[in-house]
C-alpha cells in the first residue's frame, strides 16, 4: 500500500470513529425530541419502536405549558438562577481580584477554604440548612433558594476568575493607581473591562449550575407556585405512571436556555476549564 492511500485510509477511519461518536452523543437528545413531538400514547409506547413522529404534534408542549404549571416553573428557575449567577460572580470578582493582585498572609489558607467547599458531599448540609431556613421563615421562598445558590457558586467563581485576573498584566492598574485612581475604581475601570469574556463565562457557568440544581430545591420548596424546573420534573417522575410524552417535552424545554447559553459561551467556558490543562 502506498503512503498516500494509507493516509487516506487513516483519515476515513478517523472520520467514521468521530462521526459515530457524535451520533452516540447526540442520540439521547434527538430521541427525547422525537418522543416529545408524538401525539398519541399508541405512538409513544409502540414496540417495535416507531422512530419518527407522524404527524408532528406539539400537544405535549401545550399540555405542559397550559394545563401544567411548567411556564411558572421556568420563570422561577430563570429568576432564581439569574439572581444567583449575578450575585455570586459580583462577590467573586471582589475576592478574586484581591487574591490575584495582592500578596497577603492567609492567601493559601483562603484558597484551601474555597477548594474544600467543592469536595464536601452537600447532602450532609441539607438537614441543618433546612432548620436554618425554617427558623428564618425562608422555606418555600425563591430568594432563599437564590441565596443558597449564590453561596454554592461563590467558591468556583472565585477560583475561575482568579485565573482570568492572573492573565491581565498588573502594569495596567499600577498606571491607574499612579494617576490617582483608588483601588476600587482601578478594578472596575481597568481590570474588569479587560476580563469581560471571563466574567461572562463565569456568570453563564453559575447560571447553568443553578438552573440544574435539584436536591436543595426539592428539599426547600414544596409549594407549586415556587417550584423550579427540576422540582417540577421531579414531581412528575416520582409518579407511578409517568407520562413520557409530557416528560420529554418538559425535558426539551428545560434544555433550551442551557443550549442557547452554551452555544454563546462554550468557547470561553472551554478556555476557562482547560486553562490549567494547557499550562500543564
Amino acid at each position: 500500500m502506498t503512503t498516500k492511500s494509507r493516509r487516506k485510509l487513516v483519515a476515513v477511519i478517523k472520520f467514521v470513529l468521530l462521526g459515530s461518536f457524535l451520533v452516540l452523543v447526540m442520540f439521547p437528545f434527538v430521541w427525547m425530541l422525537l418522543t416529545s413531538l408524538k401525539s398519541s400514547q399508541g405512538e409513544i409506547y409502540a414496540f417495535p419502536v416507531k422512530y419518527l413522529p407522524n404527524p408532528v404534534s406539539f400537544v405535549n408542549y401545550v399540555e405542559m405549558l397550559w394545563k401544567g404549571s411548567f411556564a411558572r416553573y421556568m420563570l422561577n428557575s430563570l429568576i432564581c438562577s439569574s439572581v444567583a449567577a449575578c450575585c455570586s460572580v459580583f462577590i467573586a470578582i471582589l475576592a478574586s481580584y484581591v487574591i490575584s493582585r495582592f500578596r497577603f498572609r492567609f492567601k493559601g489558607a483562603l484558597l484551601l477554604f474555597f477548594l474544600i467547599t467543592q469536595m464536601i458531599p452537600m447532602f450532609i448540609m441539607l438537614a441543618p440548612l433546612y432548620q436554618m431556613l425554617a427558623k428564618a421563615k425562608m422555606l418555600n421562598n425563591l430568594w432563599g433558594l437564590a441565596f443558597l445558590y449564590t453561596n454554592m457558586m461563590i467558591p468556583f467563581s472565585v477560583v475561575t476568575l482568579c485565573g482570568f485576573f492572573d492573565n491581565v498584566p498588573k502594569s495596567l492598574e499600577e498606571a491607574a493607581w499612579i494617576d490617582g485612581c483608588g483601588y476600587l475604581s482601578a478594578l472596575f475601570r481597568v481590570a474588569v473591562p479587560v476580563i469581560k469574556p471571563g466574567i461572562a463565562a463565569s456568570i453563564i457557568f453559575a447560571f447553568i449550575n443553578s438552573w440544574n440544581e435539584l436536591f436543595m430545591a426539592v428539599m426547600f420548596i414544596d409549594v407549586d407556585k415556587y417550584k423550579t424546573i427540576p422540582v417540577g420534573l421531579n414531581g412528575l417522575i416520582l409518579k407511578y405512571d409517568i407520562k413520557w410524552g409530557e416528560m420529554a417535552a418538559g425535558t426539551i424545554m428545560s434544555l433550551i436556555p442551557t443550549m442557547c447559553l452554551f452555544a454563546f459561551a462554550q468557547k470561553y467556558m472551554i478556555e476557562g476549564l482547560t486553562a490549567g490543562a494547557v499550562k500543564g
Binding site: 440544574n212 420529554a248 425535558t251 452554551f262
Partner: peptide, 22 residues
Amino acid sequence: YQALIFFPWAVSGFIIGIMWRW
C-alpha cells in the same frame, strides 16, 4: 465538533437520568 460533543456536560445529571430512563 468539540462544542457539540461537550454539550452533555452542561446538562444536569437529573435530566440526563430522565432521558436514559426513557
